Amino acid sequence: MNAQAYSDVLQGVLRTCPSTGRVHSVFASSANLQFGERLVHLGTSRQGDLPYGVLLQDRQMIELLAMITLGEAVAWDKAAGTFRFASGLTVSLSGGVPFSSVPRSLSFSGEILRRNAACLIGQLAADGAVTGFGVNAEDAALCLFGLQEEPPDFFRLTGELKNVILSEDPIRIKQVLRKVIGRGQGLTPSGDDLLVGCLIGAVYGGTRCESFCHGLRELLLEEGRRLTTEVSQEYLLYALDNRFGSRIRRLADALFAGSPEELQSALQETLAVGHTSGIDTVMGLILWISLWMGEDSIG
């Protein structure tokens, strides 16, 4: 079968990996392949485009999931641009359209960002959304802006994270990151989703903090497999290269430069990601906004 589209950096990443891999994980409508320590996501437009993803048609995905098995051997044929499964199935990138996961460059005004941030928090409060940290979204946002200190565990954790994002102290950065990476449940734990949200906020806001990013990358490469899941580590490594899934990019586009209606639509799409991955990533964006705004009012 021929893929519809694929990440424009995927083949470059695969060149650094062993050519023989395995089926890493299988879900209801997608699957991950593993080559060495890197992953490839096979999915459909339902999941959006991911920075390490290959997009298939819905019917192709159904066929693929019926044929592959967990742990099955799969080879990457670099010359042909094709994944070859032990079952005989092939997935070719030939003819597929490469896509970029890098956020588009845009200018934003502080006034629009403040307005949209207030709308975002109001919508989360109205929805009664609950984060993977067990804190409802309204309380979490108030904590991030320093307007309340309850619940204390979340207030302390996010306060420490905010302090080291702008830090130049590599030891302290890693100390705090060890408390955040892998915190929570699921394929992408809540702490990791929070970091992804912070990172995309920094990219859009033009405030990427190199010491923090360097410390996060080092920690993931040295201790990532011990601290978190392989899937989550993959997301974070791509986020450090300024590459993100299409749903969170769409939300950030709307938050920084869109209308309240665009923001609401993009938020609902993001919240549909995983059990709490969407809301936890949104909290990371709000954390970055609270840093950017400082003592300014959100309203």
Rank of each mutant, 00 (worst) to 15 (best):
N2F: 05
A3E: 10
A3C: 07
A3S: 13
A3D: 11
V9G: 03
L10N: 08
Q11S: 10
V13I: 14
S29R: 13
A31K: 05
A31L: 15
Q34Y: 02
F35I: 05
E37W: 00
E37L: 05
V40Q: 09
H41I: 10
T44A: 11
T44D: 03
R46G: 13
G48W: 04
G48Q: 02
L50Q: 02
L55K: 05
D58Y: 00
R59L: 11
Q60R: 12
M61F: 11
I62T: 15
E63T: 13
M67T: 12
M67H: 11
M67E: 15
I68M: 11
I68K: 07
T69I: 00
L70H: 13
V74K: 06
A75Y: 00
A79S: 14
A79G: 11
G88K: 05
G88P: 12
T90D: 03
L93A: 04
G96P: 10
V97K: 14
F99Q: 02
G110W: 09
G110V: 05
N116Y: 07
A117P: 01
I121E: 12
G122C: 09
Q123Y: 09
L124T: 02
A125T: 10
A125K: 13
D127T: 00
G134P: 07
N136K: 09
A137W: 09
E138M: 04
A140C: 11
C143N: 13
L144E: 08
G146K: 01
Q148C: 14
E149A: 13
P151Q: 09
R156S: 12
G159I: 10
E160M: 14
I165S: 07
S167C: 00
E168G: 07
D169W: 06
R172K: 10
I173D: 02
V176I: 15
R178F: 00
V180T: 14
I181P: 01
G184M: 03
G184C: 04
Q185K: 14
Q185L: 13
P189G: 06
D193M: 04
G197P: 02
I200W: 05
G201M: 01
V203Y: 12
G206M: 08
T207K: 15
E210L: 14
F212H: 12
R217A: 03
R217F: 02
L219R: 09
L220G: 04
E222T: 12
V231T: 15
Y235D: 08
Y238D: 14
Y238F: 15
R249A: 02
F256P: 02
A257E: 08
G258H: 10
P260S: 12
E261Y: 08
E261C: 06
E262N: 06
L263G: 07
S265C: 09
A266E: 09
T270L: 14
G274F: 07
H275V: 13
T276M: 11
G278S: 11
T281G: 14
V282W: 07
I286C: 08
W288S: 03
D296P: 01
D296K: 14
D296S: 14
S297P: 00
I298Q: 05
G299R: 12
G299S: 13
